[in-house]
Write a protein that binds this DNA or RNA. Structure first.
Lengths: 343, 343
DNA sequence: CGTGTAAATACAAACGTTTGTATTCTGTGA
DNA sequence: TCACAGAATACAAACGTTTGTATTTACACG
């Protein structure tokens, strides 16, 4: 096996300088179009750089700049289409600010999240974007001393972009009430700090209608398919199952619809299911999902802008994102006439 | 607004050295448990480092080591569960080699893929793992001169880990033949280099049975939901639609099943659908999907091992991964008795 | 042909770590 | 008490880039 080519030293600015018979500093300036270098020289250097296959060394750059132009994105589950749209918004906005995005999937594990954050810290990222993190608020407040951190969809932290979670969830509850439901289940997300707005909206809506809160109707979704299946099982085993369920997100809602069908329960005839997020898939499943349209792409964009302000000592303006909207499709309907439980 | 805390300089090895009254080099060695430093000093330094909240500066480290301990993972669609399992295998193996994984989602766009590669190059990654890349074989051969690159599921490149694609696809074809199908559609992946093994298996299987290859039965999936819908539409508009379809992957297969149902076509009664990959969801949809079980996790592990050997000048051993297996579920069945197309 | 000025470029220090080599300890045995 | 080995630590250079300052060059003007 011949000696691998990548062991040979890569071409540096000094190599180019030597080839062009100038000082390294001139090369740097030429490469970033500084007016301090004469056009002819600039072009000669640009040509040489391309020809020699120069790749800048970010490590050296980061070292002197004390920042990398990188933004770390810490997501709990890259498989959730929600994060794809978010990431898209983030990346589109990031290029405008000359920032590059690095992704780390924590798989919903808190320790992994910490490791990811540490890696990004060591990488000297300019900022962190953390949608719905697992770690505690306190952790992030401390972290915030080290690097700008903006949260998405979480409003208990110093810096966050979000839209009206309570409003979104209230719309769902109102819709279900209007259809005639009163026994409504609620699936909350992974237990943890900063995720209570949906729950809050749920309870408030119940109260406003004078309906007692029943802890039996509360389930917890951990992001996995199994979890959705398990919830579906629990739910059907109840003496008096709910006639409608407000699911934590669309992934959960869709999985539950499948699980229900497997058990011969029809949606929405036997039970209504509403989701949250309006992922692309939501309109394509059977039945199409009633859900809350959540401006993920915009949230992504705003989080970068926010981060940018933060990193430049500006007081970030309250981000403007569209209000959540209810999208009524076919997974919700009128409840069946209540069967009286015998005895 | 008070001065943001993150503008203050972070604590470096020099700060620790000063605090501990030793030389920076001693701190380095203490922090990496070198036997050259006396246990008492080591502990004192470790304590100080923790107390002062020291975070190593990877840029400086990378600069002197000329490598970062990072591995870049370039994936076309992070939403495909396939890549999640792959990434899991990669990360689990990576920690064993003290490597960290960085992900970049290219959304199937070739130019984005190039940018991602360049970013990783600038970051001085130790290697690249590239499952089913969009760029040409030639590009990667050149790239391979700069950094170790291993491909997953693609066998036209210098270094790759894969398992028997032809075998996996042949199993599907054989299964469909045995059910009595002879008019079988095939959905290929995003057009591009290095993705012909499935196609090859398809055509070979057809030939072996003496069935003519019909270009009308070949469709191209670009990874999106819309694409699956469009294919479904095209397929049904055929004068003589196929009685079975071998889909490029499970995501495609599942989307097609949905699209078919929307149009009132039943699976497998009216048409059989087989997928590829056996993602977690495959067993949970309705009907459960017949598919090829693909050892994604193992491929992930092997790709890191392979990369590691490559990076250490060892001749990498041919990776051993399980053979693909056919998983027969309910989305495939006997064809309906062939309707004769009138005159 | 000087002189002044602006343009173009060179110089040098710094960023935070690592590592090979040199130096200073420490304690032992004669 | 001295020399010596070995342990512990200090020194210094290097990694590739950036940037403020200094130097050289070119040119126009008197």
């Amino acid at each position: 096996m011949s000696k691998p080519a990548w062991e040979s030293r890569r071409v540096t600015i000094k190599d180019i300088a030597k080839a062009a018979n100038v000082d390294p500093s001139t090369v740097t300036r030429a490469l970033k179009d500084s007016p301090r270098v004469k056009p002819a020289t600039r072009e000669k250097i640009a040509g040489l750089a391309a020809e020699m296959g120069y790749v800048p060394n970010m490590a050296a750059r980061t070292l002197v700049n004390r920042k990398s132009g990188l933004v770390g994105l810490v997501i709990p589950d890259m498989t959730n289409p929600f994060f794809r749209d978010l990431a898209k918004g983030i990346e589109d906005e990031a290029v405008k600010h000359d920032l590059r995005i690095l992704i780390n999937d924590t798989r919903g594990v808190e320790s992994t999240e910490r490791e990811a954050v540490n890696l990004f810290l060591a990488l000297k990222v300019d900022g962190l974007i953390v949608p719905m993190a697992r770690c505690t608020q306190q952790y992030y407040e401390e972290l915030n001393a080290a690097v700008p951190v903006v949260h998405v969809n979480r409003d208990d932290t110093p810096h966050h972009v979000s839209c009206d979670t309570v409003e979104g969830s209230s719309l769902v509850m109102q819709h279900l009430f209007e259809l005639g439901h009163s026994r409504i289940g609620f699936v909350r997300g992974p237990a943890g700090p900063g995720r209570e707005p949906k729950m809050h909206a749920y309870r408030t809506a119940l109260e406003a209608r004078g309906i007692d809160y029943d802890p039996d109707l509360i389930f917890t979704f951990d992001g996995t398919l199994e979890s959705s299946n398990a919830i579906t099982g629990q739910l059907l085993e109840l003496d008096e199952p709910p006639t409608a369920v407000f699911a934590h997100n669309d992934v959960n809602a869709i999985a539950m619809i499948h699980a229900l069908r497997d058990r011969g329960v029809r949606v929405p005839d036997d039970i209504s299911i509403a989701g949250h997020d309006d992922i692309q898939l939501a309109g394509c499943v059977d039945p199409p999902l009633t859900t809350v349209q959540w401006p993920m792409y915009e949230l992504g964009q705003q989080s970068v802008r926010y981060l940018y302000s933060l990193g430049h000592g500006q007081d970030p303006r309250e981000p403007q994102v569209p209000q959540p909207k209810l999208v009524i499709r076919e997974s919700t309907g009128n409840p069946r006439v209540a069967r009286q439980v015998p005895g």
